[in-house]
Design a protein around this nucleic acid. Structure first.
Length: 269
DNA sequence: ATGGTTGCTTAGCAA
């Protein structure tokens, strides 16, 4: 059982790279962010030919999220069912053979102190409440996506430069920590407690050749999923070559039996 | 140095 999350920065520009990734990694589930297209322009058929059914919440020009699966996923959420947040396509959730998969594209925030920054912090709090109230974290749950926050000093190339900057400010880190405090563990760090593994490099300033990156894309897992993690890595090579996304995919490999896992302590309602 | 690059859309915004 393999899960991939990737901010593609336009699904149609990245379709060729995506189909090669599907062949190379042979994942079971793929979470995509920043589709930058509406559902009528989403390449359902091209992905079906590669063996994947797609669940899509699109938006014109901006945002857009999708979950691809070899087995047909059932839609459980498109957004928070809250009109004050659901004008932007940033969250989609699916049930896939007893596994709950939630795919998020957290707002970037643009600049510390801006309106977009305040919206980002509110969005994080909405996500936390949603997870707390609507998701049974005693079951196998994966929360995957672009969180637009680097949690620790080793997740940025120069913590002194990034101190209090967007993607690394303390309120953003606190907001992410409140998500992980629900019991959702960073599965990359479960396998690799130390060391750099950036997932995003700005297109500007030749950031990638200088490895001026941040680790802001994660697969977070509920306790049952942590017990089954076998491996986790960043597909850094995907950032190389012609027309890359500015993000690299994050991959998580699980032992067999994931779908059979049942909660030991069903959540009291 | 208020820069730089990419994508969507077509001059300006978002990242």
């Amino acid at each position: 059982m393999k899960v991939v999350t990737w901010n593609v920065n336009s699904i149609n520009v990245r379709l060729d790279r995506l189909t090669k990734l599907l062949k190379r990694e042979d994942p079971d589930v793929v979470c995509l962010q920043e589709l930058k297209c509406t559902e009528d322009k989403f390449p359902f058929e091209a992905l079906r030919e590669k063996g994947f059914e797609s669940l899509v919440w699109g938006q014109k020009t901006y945002n857009g999220v999708a979950i691809l699966s070899k087995t047909k996923p059932s839609k459980v959420w498109k957004g928070f069912n809250d009109a004050s947040f659901d004008n932007e396509a940033r969250m989609i959730g699916a049930q896939i053979d007893g596994l709950t998969v939630i795919c998020v594209y957290v707002p970037n925030g643009q600049e510390v102190g801006s309106d977009k920054y305040r919206y980002k912090l509110k969005w994080f709090e909405k996500l936390r409440l949603f997870l707390h109230e609507e998701v049974d974290l005693n079951l196998p749950v994966l929360l995957c996506g672009d969180f637009n926050v680097a949690p620790t000093d080793q997740d940025v190339y120069d913590p002194k430069v990034w101190r209090d900057q967007i993607l690394f400010s303390e309120p953003e880190k606190d907001a992410l920590r409140k998500i992980t405090d629900l019991g959702l563990q960073d599965l990359y760090r479960a396998i690799h407690p130390e060391g750099e593994a950036f997932t995003w490099w700005d297109y500007r300033n030749i950031s990638f050749p200088k490895n001026h990156g941040l680790r802001i894309d994660f697969i977070l897992g509920s306790p049952l999923s942590v017990t089954l993690v076998e491996d986790a890595y960043v597909d850094r090579n995907e950032r190389k070559g012609s027309q890359p996304s500015d993000h690299a995919p994050v991959v998580c490999l699980f032992k067999e039996g994931f779908h059979q896992k049942k909660a030991r302590h069903p959540q009291a309602q």
